[in-house]
């Protein structure tokens, strides 16, 4: 006979947090080992990696600013994953959202707040539609969403690259980039001199709303039910087909929003390839957070920290930016291991 194991919520929380921290610690140890192997001045490299992101208010603000689109994209991924859907087309959806926002802002100069809202809505509409298409294809014809989101994303990236390089290019810069949007479209900076802006508040609202939606609404409950056990949900009378499409739409729209806010808050123009990596990184943030909206905030901040650390180490020392990938890869190798989770939770069997 198996004993029924009792767990308090707090103990569960503390133990699973401990498990994740142990994995993170291991990845940091691997990073330090890699730096010692690769760098001629390992101590300088390590110092600039870990302390660099906190060296000034400017650095801290920019680090948090970089976490914003990741967090918003991760919220969408969490919704898609919790319902058993897969959207790995974030790269294209972020990039498309960014371009659409830029185009709207350039087309409607001086519209101010209304213009910002129109631009954000347009980007969410476009990116959301792309993801919806993948969801619909899976619902209707059982086409793997894993593959369609990926392929669509690659096509979109190339189309956006073309748009940025030809029809919308700004001939006056050396970069391949669109024109800059006018200052009435810039989001309010909340921590000058850094680029941190009110998009941060939008990200926090997204996390909060997603949390309430998942755990406090009927739709959210049904969404989780479909993700946990689709057969069961069908017998319970849940319209499981809706949950093949709705979460995809939401995840696409949120990716689009992330790209749009990066434009209005930080970059102010679509530069060719500026968002490369954002889509994947948001997916990875959602994975560290184990698809729980509340955990997305620390996960996104951690991710932005590693990113900023690698940039600072590259700038002040002799290692390349790609050492950040080592940390990320180690985490992702171990984060989903159910054996390690079991050890962390102190259970012999599950």
């Amino acid at each position: 006979m198996r004993k029924i194991e009792r767990f308090s919520v707090l103990e569960y929380f503390v133990r699973s947090l401990f498990g994740i921290l142990a994995i993170v610690l291991l990845s940091v140890i691997m990073l330090i080992a890699a730096i010692f192997l690769l760098s001629d001045q390992p101590l300088t490299s390590i110092a600039s990696f870990f302390a660099g992101p906190f060296s000034s208010l400017y650095a801290i603000g920019n680090m948090i600013d970089h976490a914003v689109p990741l967090a918003i994209g991760a919220v969408g991924i969490a919704l898609a994953m919790r319902s058993g859907n897969m959207n790995i087309g974030g790269e294209g959806q972020v990039y498309a959202g960014a371009l659409v926002t830029t185009i709207v802002a350039l087309a409607l100069p001086g519209w101010g707040l209304t213009g910002i809202l129109v631009a954000l809505a347009a980007s969410m509409l476009v990116s959301g539609s792309v993801a919806t298409l993948s969801g619909w294809l899976r619902e209707r014809w059982n086409v793997s969403d894993l593959i369609t989101t990926f392929l669509l994303s690659n096509i979109i990236i190339l189309v956006v690259d073309y748009m940025v390089a030809y029809p919308f290019v700004d001939p006056q810069t050396n970069l391949i980039s669109t024109r800059f949007v006018d200052p009435s479209y810039h989001l309010l900076i909340i921590l000058p001199p850094s680029q941190l802006n009110i998009a941060l508040c939008i990200a926090l609202v997204c996390v909060l709303v997603a949390h309430l939606f998942l755990y406090r609404s009927r739709t959210g409950f049904e969404l989780r039910m479909v993700g946990d056990n689709e057969e069961f949900a069908r017998y319970a009378g849940v319209d499981h087909r809706l949950y093949r499409i709705l979460p995809m739409t939401l995840s696409g729209a949120l990716y689009g929003l992330g790209g749009a806010l990066a434009i209005l808050g930080t970059y102010h123009a679509t530069i060719k390839g500026f968002s490369a990596g954002m889509g994947w990184n948001a997916l990875l943030v959602a994975l560290i957070a184990r698809f729980k909206p509340a955990a997305i905030i620390p996960a996104a901040l951690f991710f932005a920290y590693i990113d900023a650390g690698a940039r600072s180490a590259m700038f002040y020392s002799d290692v390349t930016y790609e050492i950040a990938y080592i940390v990320q890869a180690v985490i992702f190798f171990l984060i989903s291991s159910s054996i390690l989770q079991r050890i962390a939770l102190g259970r012999r069997r599950v």
Binding site: I323, F332, F333, S336
Partner: peptide, 16 residues
């Protein structure tokens, strides 16, 4: 997820 990790690791280690 481990597949994503392997891809990430590969693109990092080759450049490093």
């Amino acid at each position: 997820i481990t597949g994503l990790a392997a891809n990430l690791f590969a693109s990092g280690i080759t450049v490093i």
